[in-house]
Simulated assay, not measured.
Amino acid sequence: MGGLDPALEAHLAGGLTTVCHAWKISRKDGKVFAFTDHDLPLSFDGCTFRADAGLSAKAIAQTTGLSVDNTEAIGALSDASIREDEIEQGRFDSAEVVAWLVNWGDVDQRWLQFRGTIGEMRRVDGAFRAELRGLTEALNRTLGRVYQKPCTAVLGDKQCRFDLGLPGYTLTIAVDVEEGGRRFIWDGLPGFDEQFFIRGRLDVVDGPAQGLFGLIKHDRVKGKKRIIDLWEPIKGDVSRGTQVKLIAGCNKQFETCRLKFNNVLNFQGFPDLPGEDWVIAVPKSSGTNTGGSLR
């Protein structure tokens, strides 16, 4: 991860060393956590690195090729640092991790040893174990386009280009009735037809669960009630009065793109792609063969 600082190199060559490790974790929501395995706090890079978190790390495996660098961090769960409920909510997923080897006698002498992200994170007997993935992890992604009838874009992304900020496609509303963080019930959602939000999202706008979201499985009317069910429960407190944002759903079909979103020019599927039955069909003398669309 870059050349060794000459002053640190000279210190290490001296035989008697005063070095430790330091880690900084930057979550996507902007929160930053800094730890060290030294017995006193350290300050550099605009952070104070806590010494009371019980954080340690296994040896970092690094290569000069394109294989994925990885290691594992182990630490104690604490209300003041990394909390169990935040791990459960996925708030540390893909957080950036930077690790240094530091001369605690002179923190200006340090070596950037690792930079990457948090992969799998799990809880074990009052502690956490976090898999750390190096920058080459991005090379494991599957690239290329899939040729299929349904659209391959995500509603509102750079391929879809649909503006979800347009009126009539989102609704911010306070929670009325909530059951297990998975079912939400209102007296009605005026202006939105039944199943309008199916395959969409429910984002939590405020409260303890702010920033969390769930994918919508069902959007139905039962009697005078509008019921929205999620595939997985929101892993946080979404009590009555919490503001949530409902985002329209898309089933990836050509007709939906044309009629519901008027976004057919950006449709990323191939609706006229022949199916398997057509591929294995044999020639026949009957019927009209115009060379036109098979739809």
Results as ranks from 00 to 15, higher is better:
182 R>D: 14
160 C>H: 01
123 R>T: 14
161 R>E: 11
209 A>C: 10
192 F>A: 08
198 I>D: 15
231 W>C: 13
219 D>V: 04
142 T>L: 12
105 G>W: 13
182 R>T: 15
236 G>Q: 01
235 K>V: 07
115 R>I: 09
208 P>D: 08
187 D>R: 15
142 T>W: 13
231 W>L: 15
167 P>V: 02
229 D>T: 11
184 F>R: 01
187 D>H: 15
187 D>C: 14
227 I>D: 01
127 A>Y: 06
239 S>L: 09
152 T>G: 02
182 R>C: 15
219 D>F: 02
206 D>I: 10
182 R>Y: 12
179 E>W: 13
231 W>P: 07
197 F>D: 01
176 D>Y: 11
181 G>A: 11
226 R>K: 10
156 G>A: 06
111 W>G: 03
175 V>H: 01
144 G>Q: 04
139 L>H: 07
232 E>D: 12
177 V>C: 13
107 V>K: 04
126 G>I: 03
211 G>N: 06
214 G>K: 02
236 G>E: 02
115 R>Q: 08
202 L>Q: 05
203 D>H: 13
148 Q>H: 08
142 T>I: 11
221 V>Y: 14
155 L>R: 00
142 T>E: 12
131 E>K: 09
155 L>P: 00
205 V>H: 05
147 Y>W: 13
242 T>I: 03
140 N>G: 12
235 K>I: 07
132 L>D: 01
189 L>F: 07
127 A>I: 08
113 Q>M: 13
192 F>G: 05
182 R>W: 11
175 V>C: 06
229 D>Y: 07
172 T>P: 05
192 F>K: 07
213 F>V: 09
211 G>R: 03
133 R>Y: 05
205 V>R: 02
229 D>R: 08
180 G>L: 12
143 L>S: 10
221 V>I: 12
111 W>M: 04
162 F>I: 06
191 G>Q: 10
218 H>F: 15
146 V>E: 09
220 R>Q: 15
205 V>Q: 05
104 W>D: 06
111 W>F: 11
127 A>F: 06
215 L>Q: 12
238 V>H: 04
171 L>H: 05
169 Y>K: 02
147 Y>F: 13
188 G>W: 07
223 G>P: 06
168 G>R: 04
166 L>T: 06
231 W>A: 13
189 L>G: 03
213 F>K: 06
221 V>F: 14
129 R>N: 10
105 G>A: 11
200 G>W: 02
159 Q>M: 13
196 F>R: 04
118 I>S: 01
144 G>W: 04
228 I>C: 03
175 V>T: 06
118 I>Y: 02
210 Q>T: 14
235 K>F: 09
191 G>S: 11
107 V>F: 08
111 W>T: 04
149 K>I: 02
187 D>P: 13
202 L>R: 02
193 D>K: 15
154 V>A: 12
112 L>E: 10
104 W>T: 04
133 R>D: 08
114 F>P: 00
227 I>F: 06
155 L>G: 00
159 Q>G: 11
123 R>N: 14
114 F>A: 00
135 L>P: 00
125 D>Y: 14
108 D>K: 13
175 V>Y: 01
234 I>R: 02
132 L>S: 02
216 I>Q: 00
242 T>M: 03
122 R>G: 06
109 Q>I: 07
141 R>G: 05
235 K>N: 10
219 D>S: 05
165 G>A: 08
138 A>L: 12
125 D>E: 13
227 I>V: 09
233 P>N: 08
218 H>V: 13
158 K>S: 10
118 I>G: 00
191 G>I: 10
